[in-house]
Design a protein around this nucleic acid. Structure first.
Lengths: 340, 340
DNA sequence: CTGAAAGCGCTAACAC
DNA sequence: GTGTTAGCGCTTTCAG
């Protein structure tokens, strides 16, 4: 059957025998009050006609939408999907719709999405881990964001404090520092770090925090190997590490994904965790619950971070940049038992 | 600073000294051709003014949008997030925007999203595992979908063949049947099934397929215990199973999440997998890579399923219902070694 | 409390 | 080729 033209507000008004304005006021909220009798007449007419407001038309007339954009690196990564879940729940409470973009790390994709959101006149955009370091690209992003903000849009970021926007910041340094202290206290003596890509701030902070903590506690410098912030990256880094420095007794991977990759390397190489080697990660992603041995990590309240980011973009804008902080909590598990 | 009014096409036209129509044709595509000279003039004016088309206005004038909705149960569940990733990638290729809704299993949320998408005049909506069985609710959903379709919207589902819409269907029965056959071939003799909620079709299909396969191969009826389709559900079900029938030698959990829960129960109870008990799941979610022992499962091409679903809603609509099928592939791993 | 009418920004006939 | 103009569906002054 041919798509029947959807009923419009005009239709409803006619059906109810009232003016367009009254129908609008009765149906789609307004400070104005409509007499109860008319009101019900309109509502009934609307139901009879199966009326659904046209959000586009409303957006145009009102000059604002209910859409917030969420930009993540990879929605299949549990780190991001948990953040997304938290954000989605908060968005629901605020009656906002979430537009999702999983960039797969491609900078051009990021820019496309920003511009799509400008076109959509989105109300806000939330950047979760825009993993880039290319200055040129970062410049472009800033430019896009500026004009988005300039035309009334709100922006918040999660752990990307390089952009001049409200940001949920994670105390990476402190978390990693605390972890190093704990590990040293457990009796480990020869540590290594599997860091993420050097240009990534998060990665540097975690590495530096760990190194500082370790130095303070043990007095030595951990070996550092860098690779991608992914499971495969962890796998490769660990392989190189075992070749370079087979005598380490504990390894800190800059995120859980890398730690899982490292664990896989250990299995392949016959290195027993935690017998031969203590291993720790960072983030406490949900899938960690099911790895064996259970992995020591620094827990981040991921879902809350999504929530917080959304809260940054609703409510009245503030003059000053906000940077709510979340701390990581060291969670010791089987992968790093006390070394006697 | 006050949000400066964004430049409109009218502004651009004025700046370029051409008519509105020409500006529109030059900027936002059209079959009409614009003389090169004017064209560049318009483009330059647009750049100068920082013009961004207003998607709302375009949608209204054109009568269609570039938005597709994706409805999932829980975006933090790796099953859904992997599907979402596949779908997002495909959407990008089609220049479509993805509106995400993570319902958390709440039926009312599902309906709200459907109606939001109608309001948005979304082009299509994809339902991934709308996990419900309530007839009343299903009726409401159908009604919403019908009017969505009636007004030109497209709908596709993933593994929810109860709705009269194009659906990516999974051969749950066949996959589970094949798994049962393999397990029997490996020498297992006393099987149990941790099924999902009885009302869920997927759950019944997997259970029935396994039972049928097992019966054909071994001749007996597996014990069945049902619970939620989640990690916790698997944990509870396994607990009950161990109490009821401690002598089973292999367990099939209706999805990987339940299998992981079951594995946790085993760890707590001191039941060794696979020594005391073989264990298998279904889906092959990505986090499975890192559990020990590696879990036998039936692999589903999750990202592809997201892709396929999107393909169902782009391109010309067909008269007949389409039901592309995907098969599961049995992947034997450490959790089910041969029983001698 | 209700109605008439002026837009919101853009596209697509329809003329020239 | 290019310009004019009539909508798209709704909100919101501005008058009654």
């Amino acid at each position: 059957m041919a798509p029947t033209r959807a009923a419009t507000l005009t239709d409803v008004a006619a059906e109810a025998g009232v003016s367009l304005a009254t129908a609008s006021r009765a149906l789609n909220g307004s400070d104005r009050v409509v007499r109860e009798e008319l009101r019900t007449r309109v509502v009934e007419a609307a139901v009879r006609l199966g009326y659904t407001a046209n959000a586009q038309a409303q957006a145009m007339a009102r000059g604002s939408t209910d859409v917030v954009g969420l930009l993540v690196n990879d929605i299949a990564d549990p780190y991001f999907s948990t953040i997304a879940a938290g954000l989605a729940a908060a968005a629901e409470e605020q009656q906002l719709l979430v537009m999702l973009c999983s960039t797969g790390g491609r900078p051009e994709r990021e820019l496309e999405f920003l511009s799509a959101l400008r076109r959509q006149r989105g109300r806000a955009i939330i950047l979760a881990g825009s993993r880039t370091s290319d200055r040129r690209h970062l410049g472009e992003v800033s430019r896009q964001l500026e004009s988005f903000i300039g035309s009334g849009g709100r922006v918040a970021a999660i752990t990307q404090p390089r952009l001049p926007v409200d940001t949920v910041v994670v105390d990476n340094r402190g978390g990693a520092h605390a972890l190093a202290t704990e590990l040293a206290g457990l009796g480990y003596r020869r540590a290594a770090v599997l860091a993420g890509p050097e240009p990534l701030l998060v990665s540097r902070e975690r590495r530096d925090g760990f190194v500082a903590g370790w130095k303070a506690a043990v007095g030595t410098d951990p070996v550092c190997v860098a690779d991608d912030f992914s499971r495969d990256g962890g796998h490769r880094a660990m392989t190189r590490l075992l070749d370079q420095a087979p005598d380490v007794d504990c390894v800190f991977a800059a995120n859980d994904l890398m730690a899982m990759g490292a664990m896989a390397t250990c299995r392949e190489r016959g290195v027993r965790v935690p017998k031969d080697l203590g291993l720790a990660g960072f983030d406490d992603i949900v899938s960690l619950r099911d790895v064996t041995p259970a992995l020591t990590t620094v827990r981040l309240p991921l879902a809350d971070m999504g929530r917080m980011a959304l809260e940054l973009v609703v409510g009245p804008p503030e003059d000053t940049l906000r940077r709510p902080k979340v701390k990581g909590e060291v969670v010791l598990r089987e992968s790093t038992p006390a070394r006697r």
